[in-house]
């Protein structure tokens, strides 16, 4: 079939709307505005390492890490439950797990606002029990909760799909050889599920570290994350050069972690197949 030209419009489209915009970001990140016009400089990147911005960066990484750990702790058992064939309507259960993921994350985050706020349902419940109302919304914990809530399925689904593929006979063999439940999990199931765990970690960490909506809505703008910093630079401060530099740093971190992940995947899954 001689139809390669059919992909031509797509290639042109992607060149204009993906490739050139990324080059523009790179260009802006490496220049600064001076009275004589734009000048090449690394100043934007240097500025990123100033204490105030470094603090924002570290806070983003810290909150994203905590959320990732909580997602792993909550999600791994859930993935095991979904992967076990004890339930009759397994497909329905998996489907039910995916559905909330398709609700707009903005609305999911907003849902927690209504629960956590001062006159919200949780505080009404506390008052009903005779307890004093708490400041739940606009705290760091609320931001972490929002991240866990939004990204938990991203942790569970990759682990689930790896666990499902594990050969039952391996587990039976381990049991025959005298391993107890704990040893089987530690020495057989967990090591085999590592590719899923790794991709789960990346899939939770990446959106958590780049979000600006969750921190804005549940943190009330008190907890600036990298995403908020970028948003501010572009929409309020108008310093595109610095904003581009932060975006480039973020992009590099994400592509690096993707690279590490795909390498890990090859060693484990790919290595066995080919």
């Amino acid at each position: 079939m001689k139809s390669k030209w059919l992909s031509f419009p797509y290639l042109v489209w992607m060149l204009i709307f993906i490739f050139i915009p990324l080059l523009l970001v790179l260009y802006f990140s490496l220049t600064i505005r001076t009275p004589d016009g734009l000048v090449f400089s690394f100043d934007n990147f240097r500025r990123f390492f100033e204490p105030i911005y470094l603090k924002v960066f570290l806070r983003s990484v810290y909150l994203a890490l905590i959320s990732t750990v909580i997602c792993l702790a909550l999600g791994y058992p859930m993935a095991m439950i979904l992967a076990g064939n004890n339930f009759k309507r397994k497909n329905v259960m998996v489907f039910l797990f995916v559905v909330p993921m398709w609700m707009n994350f903005l609305l999911r985050t907003y849902a927690w606002m209504t629960l956590l706020e001062r006159q919200g349902l949780l505080n009404t419940f506390l008052t009903f029990l005779g307890l004093p109302p708490l400041n739940l919304l606009y705290t760091q914990e609320a931001v972490v909760l929002g991240m866990v809530y939004n990204f938990l399925p991203f942790m569970v689904l990759p682990i689930y799909s790896v666990l499902r593929k594990i050969d039952r006979q391996l587990i039976e063999a381990a049991a025959d050889l005298g391993a107890d439940q704990m040893t089987i999990f530690r020495r057989v199931i967990f090591p085999l599920s590592l590719p899923g765990v790794m991709s789960g970690i990346t899939m939770v960490f990446m959106p958590a570290v780049t979000t600006f909506v969750i921190s804005r809505l549940l943190g009330g703008g008190q907890f600036t994350l990298i995403g908020n910093l970028i948003e501010q630079q572009f929409l309020f401060v108008g310093d595109w050069h610095f904003g581009s530099a932060i975006s480039m740093v973020m992009m590099v971190i994400i592509l690096l972690s993707m690279g590490v992940l795909s390498r890990y995947d090859k060693e484990h899954e790919g290595g066995g197949l080919w």
Binding site: I18, P21, V25, G227, F234, M250, M251
Partner: peptide
Amino acid sequence: NLTYLPVVSPDIVTGLSLMIL
């Protein structure tokens, strides 16, 4: 690989790079 690039890169970067364009 190029096709996957916008799928994996963070939305915020896709958004602002288009805005710059």
